[in-house]
Every structure is written in structure tokens, then in C-alpha cells.
Design a binder for these strands. Structure first.
Lengths: 171, 171
DNA sequence: GCGATACTCCTGACACTGTTCGGAAAACTG
DNA sequence: CAGTTTTCCGAACAGTGTCAGGAGTATCGC
């Protein structure tokens, strides 16, 4: 339902109708509507974490960065609702529970560790990297959903970033 | 009210109370709640446009890009609610009216024109630029609101971007 | 197999939201 | 002063998330 109608359009009454229940009965399984979001938030982060772990990172920095960037932007582009839930504050009243947030932190750490393994260790470089990749993702979703206008820029972006932090122009 | 409590927390009843009115009376001035958002959306874009026009752009590409980036990120950082309203879809049910959207397009064109004036004319370069600057803005707001963790990266980012599109390392 | 316990679900209701209708004042205009 | 327009409100509607209390049902210990 969230994927089809958007994160914010989720209604507990509609959800209950879909599973042939009265709205109040959902409270047996979820403490609140935010708990539903929290579940989706946790699931999304687990999925992203799994993909990061499945990724076998090249020793070469540039191919590695390309792979990571593609992984992330694809993850964002394939499910707008999920991306909004995980990374934008589309539901302002929602804040993840400590348990779910812990998974998000794990994702963050994993990404950070991968980048460190290819030689990217400075805080500012990492921040610049996340800004760049998240910028590409959100612009892709905002200005060309379903298309590839910004996805096509990924390799170019990685080249730019690599030139800057590693120097040289090869690969 | 929006600035204090967030875009989404705006309630017409609370707004009415604040101006000593009954909620229904607001409908004399605004056709709907979205019309209120639309007003804020238009105002924000007008403000941003004004700042762009006030900016006297250097002939040198790099200082010009630095100025633009600082302008935009500052604009974002100084009012989170406004930024969300203009650039993120925090209010999913809100869509700007054609008149207000026209102002947003004007802002976009102005930015595009400025970049063209310093030699940046390729579509992909412009898209990469917007991705980079919007990425810095949203990361700043999301991860360090009120701080300057990503603002400090602007000059560095512009250097990286300039190296890439213009080549060379000076300035 | 039976009694106690835990779980599942629903009825009813509360407080809140944005919004529409119809009418009453108030302000402005000729 | 008469007529028209603007401003405002009372009542009400459909929708939301959520809580309290009570049935019915499954599960567990003996």
C-alpha cells in the first residue's frame, strides 16, 4: 500500500480493511501507526545492509566506489516510498525506535567501513561522499522518477570524486 | 508557526486561534490548507530569486560557483521548514499551483543562466552541480541542523567540481 | 479433560483534522 | 440611505489515530 499510494497516504483504517479487520484490532500487532512505519524503516535498512554485505568490493578504489554508488542510487530509485521513509523526513512525526535506528547506524557504519577499506578515511571525504551520493539519489527521485537522468551521472561523479580525493585521472 | 513547529504540524484551527478567528473564516482568504502552503512556497521562491538577482557574479568561474553554493546552502540552512517546503516533499499532498510553480521555474532558470555565464552549459554538468549542492544542503539539515559540518565542505566541493569540469587546479 | 490464563478481535467512543453550507453582521459603494 | 459586497461564524460532515472495556477463542498446566 505504501509503495503504491505513498508513505503518507497510509491509513490504518484502509490497512485494516485490506486484511479484513477492524482498525482497532491492528493495535494487537502494532502499538501505533508509527510502529508500522518503524517496521518498514527497519526492514528497509536491513535490506540495504544485506546488499552492502553481499557486495564484494574491489581492491581498486574507483570500481569500488562506482559499485557502492550504483548500489545506493538503485536502492533509492527502485522504491521511492522506502527511500523517503529511510532518508527523507516525509513523515515528520515519525521517529525510528532505538532498535530500528540501531540498524540504520549499522548501515552507516558498514558504508563507512567499506569506504575506509578502499582508502577513504577522512571524515570530510566521507561526508562529501554521502552528500554527493544522496544528492544524486534525491534529484533522481525528485526530477526524473522512473528515468535515469541522474543515474547516468554516477560514473562521472565517481570519477570527479576520485580525482579529487585520490588525484590522478586513470581508471 | 511553520518555522517553529515544522511544516507538517500546521493546523488551520491553531492558525485561526492565533489570529482570533474561527477556522472557517480562514477560507475567506485561503481556498484550502494547500493554498496556505502555496503562499509560503511562492514567498520562499521569490526570496531565493531575489537573492540570486542581488548576487553580483564574478567573472572567474570558481569564485562564482563558490558564491552560488554558499547562497543556496545558507538559504537552506537558515530555515529548515522553508527548505522542506520548496525542495523536499515533506507535504506529499501539496502540489504548487501553476503560478507558484512558475516562480520556482524562474529560480531554476536564473540559476541555470548564472552557471551558463561562467561557462557551464552542458546539461550533465548542470545536473551534477544541482545534485552536489542539494546533497550538501539536505545532509546539512538532516545530520547537523544548526551546525556547519557540511557548510564547511562547500569550498572543497566547488574545488572538486571545478577541477572536473574546467580542469586545472588553480583558484 | 477441565479450569485458569493469555491472546485476538470488536463495539463504542473521544479528540482531532480539513472542509462545506447557509446565514448573519459589517463594510463599502452609488 | 439603499444596495451590494465582503467578512465572519454556527452547525455539521467525513475522515483520521487511538483508548477502554468486554466478549470469544486458543493455549497451557494439572
Amino acid at each position: 500500500m505504501v509503495r503504491v499510494n505513498g508513505v503518507n497516504a497510509l491509513s490504518l483504517r484502509a490497512l485494516a480493511r485490506a486484511v479484513d479487520m477492524e482498525p482497532q484490532s491492528l493495535y494487537t500487532y502494532f502499538a501505533s501507526k508509527n510502529a508500522v512505519y518503524d517496521q518498514l524503516f527497519a526492514d528497509g535498512n536491513r535490506e540495504l545492509l544485506a546488499r552492502f554485505e553481499r557486495l564484494d568490493v574491489s581492491d581498486e578504489p574507483r570500481p569500488a566506489l562506482r559499485a557502492i554508488a550504483h548500489l545506493f542510487v538503485s536502492f533509492a530509485a527502485e522504491d521511492q516510498a522506502r527511500y523517503e521513509l529511510l532518508f527523507l523526513r516525509t513523515i515528520p512525526e515519525f521517529e525510528p525506535s532505538p532498535e530500528s535506528y540501531a540498524i540504520a547506524v549499522e548501515v552507516f557504519s558498514k558504508g563507512r567501513a567499506i569506504l575506509a577499506s578502499v582508502g577513504l578515511r577522512r571524515d570530510e571525504d566521507f561526508d562529501l561522499w554521502t552528500a554527493l551520493v544522496s544528492g544524486l539519489s534525491s534529484q533522481q527521485l525528485a526530477n526524473d522518477p522512473g528515468g535515469d537522468r541522474y543515474i547516468k551521472l554516477i560514473d562521472n561523479s565517481v570519477a570527479m570524486f576520485s580525482e579529487h580525493v585520490f588525484g590522478g585521472r586513470d581508471s
